[in-house]
């Protein structure tokens, strides 16, 4: 049991700092390690956990809590979650502190103006990647477009739009 906890900690402490861009970047490596190296579950099990983490609110990288739970119970879930989020959160905390210290400097102002198009471009790029990855059919494209229009042009609460999307997906049999 202790060995499992150490392995969980070691795996996710490492993956935490490798997940550049988003938590999704390390999913294939995670799957390989927990299925092939540690034999904690089958590929099918891992895909189930992936689906669950997408169904729950919050970041998709919470799949690590499920992997930890599967391998080592609630304690495993806690170890996996803290290991996955700890290093990356410390890093962004220090970066943000440093960034905040220079809030009135000219170079930060310039860096913000330089980074804005990069940040916004990546938002659109990840939306495109998601559209490709989920094999959008015509109905799904229409849903995405409708949600985009409503949320860009009105101040309706997004939860209603999400609920309408789920209802439409169910009715259309997406």
């Amino acid at each position: 049991m202790t060995l499992i906890l150490w392995r969980l900690a070691g795996l996710f402490l490492m993956l935490s700092l490798l997940a550049v861009g988003s938590g999704n970047a390390v999913i294939p490596e995670m799957q390989r390690t927990v299925v092939r190296d540690f034999h904690w579950m089958t590929d099918r099990d891992f895909l189930d956990l992936f689906a669950i983490s997408r169904a729950a609110p919050g970041p998709g990288s919470l799949i690590v809590a499920l992997v930890g739970q599967k391998a080592g119970g609630l304690l495993g879930a806690a170890v996996a979650t803290v290991s996955m989020f700890g290093p990356s959160c410390l890093l962004i905390h220090f970066a943000a502190s440093l960034w905040h210290r220079y809030r009135d400097s000219a170079w930060r102002e310039r860096a913000e103006r330089a980074l804005a198009p990069v940040a916004i471009g990546l938002i659109f790029a990840s939306a495109l990647a998601l559209v490709h990855g989920t094999e959008h059919g015509f109905a799904a494209y229409a849903l995405t477009a409708a949600a985009t229009l409503v949320l860009a042009l009105t101040e309706w609460h997004p939860l209603w739009v999400m609920a309408a999307g789920a209802g439409a997906g169910w009715l259309l049999g997406l």
């Binding site: 997408r54 169904a55 804005a116 198009p117 916004i120 789920a166 439409a168 997906g169 997406l174």
Partner: peptide, 26 residues
Amino acid sequence: SAMAGLGAAAIGMNVANGLRMTRRGI
């Protein structure tokens, strides 16, 4: 199916947010 529909709408939320940010960011 419901999850797929919700996912499609959530992508739209990201795009809408990106569009809103272009007003000041670009």
